[in-house]
């Protein structure tokens, strides 16, 4: 099962940092996110995209996780050579993550 099935995501940018909310469609799936969408898994999945540290914030009352990914925007929104300089499309890259 893909993360896409159980959660929605919005990405945002601050310089070379990408923010990524992972929000459970149903709150009962929050523990699944907590257990399976770990910092290590996200780093591994976004290899080649996120080059720096990844932080995870847990937001149980929202049924959501917030990831803050450093060095993730190819030097930053204003100087990136990538097509999607803001990383606006990257929400759908993490939603490709396979859950076990």
């Amino acid at each position: 099962m893909k993360l896409y099935e159980v959660a929605h995501c919005r990405t945002g940018d601050k310089g070379n940092t990408l923010t990524m909310s992972i929000i459970a469609f149903k709150k009962e799936n929050y523990p699944l996110l907590l257990e399976q969408v770990t910092v290590d898994k996200v780093k591994d999945h976004l290899q080649g995209i996120v080059l720096g540290d990844v932080e995870r914030y847990e937001l149980p009352s929202l049924g959501a996780l917030q990831f803050v990914c450093h060095e993730a925007l190819d030097t930053g929104v204003t100087t990136s050579l990538a097509m999607d300089t803001h990383g606006k499309t990257l929400s759908y890259s993490i939603l490709e993550l396979e859950l076990s």
């Binding site: 919005r10 945002g12 940018d13 929202l62």
Partner: peptide, 26 residues
């Protein structure tokens, strides 16, 4: 929920010139 967390670098310490706010309690 999506917009609350949009471009937020720390949901427990969202910082503006005016204040540092804890959005996790919303």
């Amino acid at each position: 929920k999506e917009q609350l967390l949009y471009e937020v670098l720390n949901p427990t310490a969202y910082t503006t010139p005016d204040i540092i706010a804890d959005f996790s309690k919303v």
